[in-house]
Each structure stands twice: as structure tokens, then as C-alpha cells.
């Protein structure tokens, strides 16, 4: 399924991969979250993997989008795991975070599944 700026693909039973593209407009996060959660509910999703491999930097604005999406997913009983976070993004994010984020993190999907 394609939502503007996002590709949502089922990769297993209850597992979904969310792949953001360059055209993603996170300022429109409410409608994006509505579309993603609606699809996850419809497909009875259990886990949502968010691919961060193309993101070199996570600023507070992008973090607030990830945080809102993870919280919305949690409400519908879907666990969100951010995968393939780049060293530069982790470096930047660690500098302004006070605690651990709402979402989980893993190097790869397989690492989390193990």
C-alpha cells in the first residue's frame, strides 16, 4: 500500500515494513498517522518496522513524527521498531533525547525477530 511519501509492505504474518521516501511531508503527520494506523488495523498487524536507512540525521521535528507514529501504533497494539538507524542519526538523536524513545530499535529485522 502506498501513502504519499510512505511505502507500507507486508513482510510476514502480522509484520509490516514502512519505508519512507524523500517526498514524505512530516508536517502533515496527523493524516499520515490516520492512513497508516487504519491500514495496520485492517490488516491485523502486530509489528511495524520503520526503515531509517536513508536518513542521515534525525532532528527534533522528525523525532516528533516517529514518536507520534509509535504512540499511535501502540494504541492499536502494534509494536513499532525502527531499523537500520545510521550512526550519524543515532549520534544526533542521542544528543537531544532525555530518555529512551517510545519505539524499539534494531539493526535489522532479523535481529529483532531473533
Amino acid at each position: 500500500m502506498s501513502i504519499p511519501g510512505l511505502h507500507l509492505t507486508q513482510i510476514g504474518s502480522g509484520d509490516f515494513l514502512l519505508d519512507p521516501s524523500r517526498s514524505l511531508n512530516i508536517r502533515d503527520k496527523d493524516s499520515l498517522i490516520d492512513a497508516v494506523t487504519a491500514h495496520l488495523m485492517q490488516m491485523r498487524a502486530v509489528r511495524l518496522y520503520y526503515d531509517l536507512s536513508d536518513l542521515g540525521l534525525i532532528d527534533p521535528l522528525y523525532y516528533s513524527w516517529l514518536d507520534a507514529l509509535a504512540r499511535a501504533a501502540h494504541i492499536i497494539n502494534v509494536e513499532m521498531i525502527c531499523i537500520r538507524m545510521q550512526p550519524t542519526a543515532a549520534f544526533a538523536l542521542a544528543r537531544f533525547l532525555d530518555g529512551l524513545p517510545v519505539f524499539k530499535t534494531a539493526l535489522e529485522i532479523q535481529d529483532w525477530q531473533k
Partner: peptide, 12 residues
Amino acid sequence: MQMVRAVQLMGA
């Protein structure tokens, strides 16, 4: 703490 958090964010 920043260092530990960054490691955790990478998924390790």
C-alpha cells in the same frame, strides 16, 4: 549517557 543511548538507538 549519550553514548549508551546512541548505542541503544542503533539497536545494540
